[in-house]
Design a protein around this nucleic acid. Structure first.
Length: 688
DNA sequence: GAAGAGAGCGCC
DNA sequence: AAAGGGCGCTCTCTTC
């Protein structure tokens, strides 16, 4: 390990900070006891250095349990309209105006001390910075914006935080899943009502209402720039901070009752900070390359569209147009599936040589898809030249992250080189290999599967067990060579394994492998017979979950069903899956939380957080050290939580000049050379 | 004309 | 009878 590199910078940073701190933190007078009563039952406005230091002294003298914090702010850049309802703001353009702090004291002198700090006056900042280092629980609501304000003001971090929105969101997961609303289907509005209800439930007002705390404030506009603080602004932000402070104990008790306190304390709260920092940091788009991709898409699509019109396809995006076209050529029966006609790419690919128009159609679909790549939207680039995708912590029932504007997690693999590092930096990606299979093995405690997971490529191992026609000599090949020689067998094992995790049926397998239902059934039976305890425990766990009404991860996060009566197929599926998907997220988040702190010494940072992989932007001089550290932390976190596992990582570090898949930084330029040919690449071999 | 549903595609 | 867990995004078509 070469950790020593980064320490030089760290120490220099510390020296600079120490020199700075010596100037600002030296107390002017000896410490004297402040009359605490004086600060109770009123709001103290802080707009000078002297007042800020008094506040700091008071906090240090009192036995504070926690503090509710709330910034008021606006965005100096106008937001980018995404649709009728949503506006994307550049987080870097945030302008904090006020900070309300409600300190809660619970020993002897029970009560609160309420302050509002005018953070537009730089004089108050040094004392504030000191205050944030105090070992107090800082409680916020949707703390991402509070953290952005702290970072904008260069006030550093808060160590112990509690996000009341996250705490609320983690309880009762699953109850408002839109699927329940849809299945009841008396009216189509149900799903939307679900979303609205969820939004209200997680709002400060909704959360206060749930816990019986009085709170009536309306949210202020984010683009209005207050010239002077009105009394209403000040009252409002104080009311927020005070309500937030009141929520803390109620939520801790609630979380204790519902079994999620441990998860909140050890994973979720730090995760909010980790994710906020990734959003704050953003990713850098290769602007010129994006432009070239945009132009290529437009040009090629125009060509393809006019060619398709010759064949009578006026609009290749229209289902009806395709129906008409295929009916005219007597090809419609190729696309029938369960009484419906589907023209998805798999089906088009299957019959690509049935008509001259098919390849054109296939290519047009592909290119239209590339055109939708979110990072091509130049409007979303922030003032710092980077894309700050919105990262939502509570976007899924399994507590995986979701991203939007742009959906950075959904960028097609070949388009990843559109993300590049800043000058002097490189991009690396580290994946936990086959982690969900490993977690399934542990959660459902199948010794045989655990052993396979620990002894190398798990799909290779399964193939060796499953197929008895593999020559003895091949069984001792390296994973890489085995994979190359017995690729199809390995792929089959992979699909069957995903079947365990995702609840695939024989019907689904027959579709995926293009085999008959009967063959699929036989294959699945034989496969499941290899792991009898996995099957048994998987069904036991689901049966218990059904009785309780919720599935549970290893750290105690529950996903509830919202219906009574017998389980639907879908519910059975997620009840089997949630313990795996949700539990796999835990060690991943723990590792990211540690990396969020550890990478700072290298001036490196996490930029994309997948569900089992991290993308890191790091100075070229420390690239290897950062990769080693990240690999180590990812493996360590898995091992701490699941000591029986021997996790491995895949490190993609060879071409750090861009984000890429499997070390290929040229996938975008290759695509640009001939987009149509690229789209049809998989059919080339068939023609030869 | 707005909004929802569904299809289809991308990611893990 | 349905048939693959978790998502975001965009386009078309229908409905209110």
């Amino acid at each position: 390990m070469q950790l020593s590199n980064g320490w030089t910078e760290l120490i220099e940073d510390a020296k600079r900070q120490a020199a700075h701190a010596a100037i600002i933190a030296a107390p002017k007078q000896p410490v004297s006891s402040l009359a605490a009563d004086h600060f109770q039952s009123k709001v103290t406005f802080i707009n000078s250095r002297e007042h800020a230091e008094t506040m700091l002294q008071l906090v240090r003298q009192r036995a504070i349990s926690h503090v509710g914090i709330r910034f008021s702010y606006f965005y100096s850049r106008p937001g980018v309209p995404i649709n009728e309802h949503d506006i994307a703001y550049d987080p870097r353009s945030i302008r904090p105006t006020l900070l309300a702090l409600t300190f809660v004291e619970h020993s002897g002198n029970t009560g609160t001390y309420r302050f509002v700090v005018d953070v537009r006056n730089p004089e108050v900042l040094p004392a504030l910075k000191e205050l944030l280092k105090e070992p107090i629980r800082f409680v916020g609501h949707e703390m991402k914006s509070d953290l952005f304000c702290l970072w904008k003001l260069r006030l550093g971090d808060v160590d112990m935080l509690w996000d009341a929105r996250v705490a609320e969101g983690i309880q009762d997961l699953g109850r408002l899943h839109p699927r329940y609303a849809r299945d009841k289907t008396d009216n189509g509005q149900a799903a939307q009502e679900c979303e609205y209800e969820e939004r209200f439930r997680l709002s400060l007002r909704g959360t206060c209402q749930h816990h019986g705390i009085r709170y009536m404030r309306e949210q202020a506009s984010l683009e209005r720039q207050p010239v002077e603080h009105s009394a209403a602004d000040i009252d409002g932000v104080v009311e927020d901070a005070t309500a937030i402070a009141s929520l803390y104990f109620a939520q801790v008790i609630d979380a204790t009752i519902k079994g999620s306190l441990h998860h909140l304390e050890t994973i979720a709260m730090d995760w909010t900070r980790t994710v906020a920092r990734a959003e704050w940091r953003g990713v850098k788009p290769a602007v010129l390359l994006c432009e070239r991709v945009r132009e290529a898409c437009e040009a090629r699509l125009r060509e393809l569209e006019s060619q398709l019109i010759v064949f009578g396809i006026e609009n290749f995006r229209s289902h009806d147009c395709l129906m008409e076209f295929f009916a005219k050529h007597g090809l419609l029966e190729l696309f029938i599936n369960d009484g419906e006609y589907g023209f998805d790419r798999k089906q088009l690919g299957l019959y690509i040589d049935r008509h001259e128009a098919m390849p054109l159609l296939y290519a047009a679909r592909h290119i239209a898809d590339i055109q939708r790549t979110g990072i091509l939207n130049a409007q979303l680039i922030g003032g710092d030249g980077r894309l700050h995708a919105l990262m939502e912590l509570l976007g899924t029932e399994s507590l995986r992250l979701t991203t939007k504007w742009p959906n950075i997690l959904g960028i097609s693999r070949i388009m990843r080189p559109l993300i590049i590092p800043e000058t002097g930096y490189g991009i690396i990606e580290i994946d936990l290999s086959q982690i969900e299979v490993c977690i399934a093995a542990v959660v459902y405690w199948d010794i045989k599967l655990i052993h396979l997971c620990n002894s190398g490529d798990v799909y290779n191992g399964m193939a060796k067990l499953h197929y008895n026609d593999i020559p003895e000599a091949d069984r001792h090949l390296s994973d890489k060579k085995f994979k190359k020689k017995h690729g199809p067998k390995r792929d089959c094992m992979k699909i069957l394994t995903l079947g365990i995790i995702y609840g695939l049926t024989a019907f689904g397998i027959s579709n995926l492998l293009n085999i008959s239902k009967h063959e699929a059934q036989t294959l699945l039976e034989k496969f499941m017979a290899m792991f009898p305890s996995l099957r048994q425990r998987r069904d036991d766990v689901a049966a218990h979950a059904a009785l309780r009404g919720y599935a549970c991860t290893v750290s105690g996060i529950r996903r509830h069903r919202a219906a009574m009566g017998p389980l639907s197929d879908w519910e059975l599926n997620w009840m089997r899956n949630h313990p795996i998907q949700g539990s796999a997220a835990d060690p991943f988040k723990v590792a990211c939380n540690r990396l969020d702190r550890l990478l700072r010494r290298f001036h490196a940072g996490l930029i994309v957080l997948f569900h089992d992989a991290v993308v890191i932007e790091a100075p070229l001089s420390h690239l290897q050290a950062v990769a080693d550290l990240a690999s180590q932390e990812l493996c360590r976190a898995v091992q701490e939580m699941f000591p029986v596992l021997r996790p491995r990582v895949d490190v993609n570090i060879r071409r750090p000049e861009s984000w890429n898949k499997d070390g290929d930084p040229n996938s975008v330029t290759d695509w640009l050379a001939d987009p149509v040919k690229s789209a049809l690449k998989k059919f080339e071999k068939m023609e030869e």
